[in-house]
Design a protein around this nucleic acid. Sequence first.
DNA 1: AACGCAAGCAACCGCCTCATC
DNA 2: TGATGAGGCGGTTGCTTGCGT
Length: 207
Amino acid sequence: MRTPCCERMGLKKGPWTAEEDHILVSHIQRYGHGNWRALPKQAGLLRCGKSCRLRWINYLRPDIKRGKFSKEEEDTILKLHQILGNRWSAIAASLPGRTDNEIKNFWHTHLKKRIEKSGVLHNGNAYASSHMILQEAQDASSTSSSVTGNMMIANYGLASRKNPPFVGTGFYGAVSSNTFMGNHDSCQLSEEMEFWYNIFIKSGQTS
DNA sequence: AACGCAAGCAACCGCCTCATC
DNA sequence: TGATGAGGCGGTTGCTTGCGT
């Protein structure tokens, strides 16, 4: 059993002060953050490395976009959440300037309730469906090496860490029903494919 | 004005993964 | 090849703020 780094005596917890923020920002601007565990000592902060990292990533980073989420951002979160589940960091990769923590909070305080109300998040059989989709994706990949098959396999790998993939109907509805169920609407399909493909290309997470 | 409640958000905790030895 | 350390991630907590009564 490992001892959490934060249990070391004398380390401060709780909200960050403006002075601590200033110290952390100037240290990172000057020296970077090669080693988070060593950073607080080098910078003269009585914080653990994890706390410094979190503060920097979620609040102090210069490229953080603060304020309300736009409609486009909301849509992206909703769509990606249907594919990836609670993989907030992967979702955040597609929203420049937004952090995983921010998106997670936004989801729990706004989107989750909205979806529960509208009844979209209902698919109790999503996990079983995902296995079917994986099989289909493997078939598609092995027989034709299609973008669809490879993308779906990549996506399955992405979603497999903790959460059952393909929660909800979004990706399944957007791609698999068109691709595998014989319900062709090629124009809509290609737009959908392009959307998802761009998402994954953008976040650098295709295989 | 005072109180209670709910929403929003920053921060912590514990687990997982990966690199290194 | 297993042990260990560090970074990263998602879940959760708890404080602050705003609003209704």
